[in-house]
């Protein structure tokens, strides 16, 4: 069923992909190559001298049980962020899709959080849950619940997940809504005439037809959770309490930009690159098969 366009010769196709290749080379291959190169050295912070250590940085990292534990933290964090942000967005999109009056107002309002930078989002949530002056922690206190994400690991994880997922809901919502609106009404109406109720229609028709959007968002959200969430973590927990919210990318940031340990930081970036690359390949190889285009 695949469509193929055949070119005569090599020149034109090469020319057509050249801009994309150039962008990828300059903004991806070059820095990634630099990271790989740097990961083989232990440099001093000022770049005055550096020592070749081969795979020493990787040995150092993988021999550290706290670093290995950070993989589990990252897996939990990324799954939760993806699940929460996509789940909430799908619910909202389904509801917004059924709206008749004021649909565009709701949509606009739902898109707002996306404009908030992650670090600012972190501060906002931190204020609400601040153990001393937070509005929400105060109400929880009235209910007899002692909120303390400063020492409670589960609460800290919950808070950074919600804060990271929140801004992302808007983005996902936009895509889900567009996906829903591209599903032909006639299909759904036909099912309705056959007596299928909302939930059955959603399960057997809407969700499968939405799968290309869902798959795209799954990939994009996992990449987001892996790479772009350190601002939130930095402002809310700094990776604590203990190491409960130290995800891989936060450790890259902390070791490289706070600790000035550029060799270890580069090696961590390389490991992260491999992990996310592998994940994406797996997604394309196994999950994409279930996607109906």
């Amino acid at each position: 069923m695949e469509k193929r366009v055949t070119f005569k010769g090599w020149l034109l196709p090469l020319l057509l992909v050249a801009p994309q290749l150039a962008v990828t080379a300059v903004f991806f291959f070059y820095p990634a190559g630099q990271a790989v190169w740097q990961s083989l050295f232990i440099p001093d912070p000022f770049g005055l001298r550096s020592q070749f250590v081969g795979l020493g940085n990787f040995e150092f990292l993988l021999g550290d049980s706290y670093y290995r534990a950070s993989f589990v933290t990252t897996a939990v964090f990324s799954s939760l962020v993806t699940l929460v942000s996509m789940g909430a967005a799908l619910c909202l999109a389904v509801l917004a899709d059924r709206l008749i009056k004021g649909a565009s107002t709701y949509r606009t309002l739902l898109i707002w959080p996306y404009a908030v930078a992650p670090a600012v989002a972190g501060v906002l949530w931190l204020f609400m849950f601040n153990t001393r002056v937070g509005v929400i922690s105060w109400y929880l206190g009235l209910l007899g619940y002692d909120w303390n994400h400063v020492l409670n690991e589960g609460e800290a994880m919950g808070l950074v997940v919600v804060a990271s997922a929140w801004g992302r809901v808007s983005y996902n919502f936009l895509f889900f809504l567009a996906g829903l609106q591209s599903i032909p009404r006639s299909v759904i109406e036909a099912a309705a005439i056959d007596g299928a109720r909302f939930w059955t229609r959603f399960r057997t028709i809407v969700f499968p037809l939405l799968s290309p959007t869902t798959f795209f968002l799954l990939v994009v959200n996992i990449v987001y959770a892996f790479f772009e969430t350190f601002g939130v973590i930095h402002t809310i927990t700094s990776g604590g309490p203990q190491q409960a919210t130290t995800i891989l990318v936060y450790k890259v940031f902390a070791d490289g930009f706070v600790g000035q340990d550029l060799g270890s930081s580069a090696a961590q970036s390389v490991i992260l690159l491999i992990v996310v690359g592998t994940l994406t390949i797996i997604q394309f190889k196994y999950i994409e098969r279930k996607v109906h285009y």
Binding site: S238, G239, G240, P241, Q242, Q243, A254, D255, V258, G259, Q260, D261
Partner: peptide, 11 residues
């Protein structure tokens, strides 16, 4: 690396 060591102590 004392900034990082302090972070370890904090943890």
């Amino acid at each position: 690396s004392f900034d990082q060591i302090r972070a370890i102590i904090d943890e």
